[in-house]
């Protein structure tokens, strides 16, 4: 995974509440065997018209936001299904950061696993940022300092789980981190198999 430090970019203001993962990635795209190339399917019903042409009313097709790497989303983004395809699609569209007042739990974790930085700010601050970026202005996200900087230089602070922040800043592979705990893992299984032998195939 690429380490993440800071990013300064345009942002797409996507102001809807409770956007579920069926909207982010419809089930027709879940048949893929790979993590790549899912950007085309992301937000399909919103981004395209029935004839398949880009929907000019969609924020995602607004030329003012072209090249945006930050997504400003409404509260409870990513609710519903556990499909990681939602995170893969957003990443494939070029987004590296999502800022929202709240995230659904599984989606939040799926973003992290794919190196997408998920920033939680109070709803009023997210709305202020959405206003800020309307004309294509840039904002900055600094994971090290845990700040988002507005175009007027004002700074919003955010909290970040230390474990996730450390992994993101250093681009660490989570499975690799866990496998370093092999000793503790062996010991856990040994003890549990004595206490609850039926979970270990004892008949």
């Amino acid at each position: 995974m690429e380490p993440f430090k800071t990013i300064t970019s345009k942002a797409v203001p996507f102001n809807r509440r409770n956007v579920d993962t069926d909207i982010i990635m419809p089930s027709e795209f879940l048949k893929s065997l790979s993590r790549e190339g899912l950007g085309v399917g992301a937000f399909k019903a919103l981004r395209y018209l029935e004839d398949g042409s880009p929907n000019p009313d969609s924020e995602f097709n607004n030329p003012a936001y072209e090249g945006a790497q930050i997504l400003l989303a409404g509260p409870n983004i990513g609710c519903g299904s556990s499909r990681e395809h939602a995170a893969w699609g957003i990443k494939d569209m070029g987004f590296k950061v999502i800022i929202a007042a709240s995230f659904a739990d599984i989606f939040y974790s799926n973003c992290f696993k794919n190196g997408i930085v998920t920033v939680i700010l109070p709803e009023a601050q997210v709305e202020a940022l959405m206003e800020d970026v309307k004309e294509g202005a840039e904002i900055s996200v600094d994971l090290e300092a845990q700040t988002v900087q507005r175009p007027n230089q004002e700074v919003f602070h955010f909290d970040y789980e230390p474990f996730k922040r450390h992994a993101l800043l250093n681009g660490l592979d989570e499975i690799g981190i866990t496998l370093q705990k092999a000793g503790a893992l062996d010991e856990f299984e040994k003890q549990q198999s004595q206490k609850l032998p039926w979970l270990y195939g004892a008949a």
């Binding site: 993590r35 556990s82 499909r83 990681e84 995170a87 599984i106 974790s109 799926n110 696993k113 794919n114 989570e174 499975i175 866990t178 496998l179 893992l185």
Partner: peptide, 13 residues
């Protein structure tokens, strides 16, 4: 429920 990266993590560890 977990995402696919967690499925992988759980299979491996």
């Amino acid at each position: 429920g977990i995402g696919t990266s967690e499925v992988e993590h759980c299979l491996a560890t």
